[in-house]
């Protein structure tokens, strides 16, 4: 992807001389330094008003909060990638810093080439992650395996047996899967789910509904809708024949 504007970086560093020196180097490397804050509290305000693409965060800051605490708040509230600048680093500090999920660490003192490389690598990774997020939404939310689906649900892949699925319902670009016990909302279109389901058991009865034939409890007299437990599912006019035929087969 071509970047039209320079990536925006926020510096959070208590030593203004070091901060000014780094921001000069960053500018020379073609980055836009959107600001320098010496306190974490101020940095959070800056981010709220002018969201940078990346934050260079010193661990020791003036003010009440240290860089790790600030970075954790940033991860939670803003999800702006953080790189830590550190001079000393005992193991306890390092383990704590990791909880803020930084993209890299830069040791002070550092060389310009090291700074440049770390930033390039971080921006590359950010781009890859943004790309794959889009791809994930299309493919990875569901994967099929013989008698089951794995569905991304609250950041985990959850197993759902096909025989437990009642039906799936489209909701604009989303899709809901109903099982006897639970309902799953997925950020993928219904047709992606449909393609993962075996066509001998699952039938598209309506633009917005794919049902499990084995779960149908009743069908209305003129075949306008069918019942699955207490759910009423509409049948599209042009699907009526197909649905009735498939039901007779079972």
């Amino acid at each position: 992807m071509e970047k039209t504007t320079a990536p925006k970086i926020l510096m959070v560093e208590d030593d203004m001389i070091i901060a000014a020196d780094i921001s000069m180097q960053l500018t020379k490397l073609g980055y836009e330094v959107v600001g320098i804050n010496t306190r974490g509290e101020d940095a959070l305000k800056t981010i709220e008003n002018n969201r940078p693409d990346l934050i260079l965060m010193d661990i020791i800051l003036s003010g009440k909060m240290n860089g790790i605490e600030a970075a954790r708040i940033i991860l939670e509230k803003f999800q702006v990638p953080v790189i830590f600048l550190t001079s000393n680093s005992d193991d306890a500090t390092f383990q704590q810093a990791l909880t803020a999920k930084p993209y890299a660490f830069i040791s002070k003192p550092f060389q310009k080439s090291g700074l440049e490389r770390t930033l390039q690598l971080a921006f590359q990774r950010i781009a890859v992650e943004q790309e794959s997020e889009t791809v994930n939404e299309l493919n990875d939310h569901v994967s099929a395996m013989e008698d089951r689906l794995f569905i991304r649900h609250k950041n985990q892949m959850v197993k759902v047996l096909l025989s437990d699925i009642l039906y799936a319902e489209a909701e604009r670009t989303y899709c809901k899967i109903y099982t006897e016990k639970q309902t799953y909302l997925l950020s993928v279109p219904l047709r992606n789910i449909e393609s993962q389901l075996p066509s001998d058991t699952f039938v598209r009865v309506h633009r917005s509904y794919v049902v499990n034939l084995h779960k149908i409890d009743a069908i209305s007299e003129n075949h306008e809708y069918l019942m699955i437990q207490s759910h009423q599912v509409p049948i599209a006019r042009r699907s009526k024949e197909e649905v009735v035929k498939r039901l007779k087969m079972i």
């Binding site: 390092f94 990791l98 999920k101 930084p102 993209y103 890299a104 660490f105 990774r125 992650e129 794959s132 994930n136 990875d140």
Partner: peptide
């Protein structure tokens, strides 16, 4: 290694 593991976790 540790930052790589964090990224791997974030990427699933």
């Amino acid at each position: 290694v540790e930052t790589t593991l964090k990224r791997m976790a974030a990427e699933g």
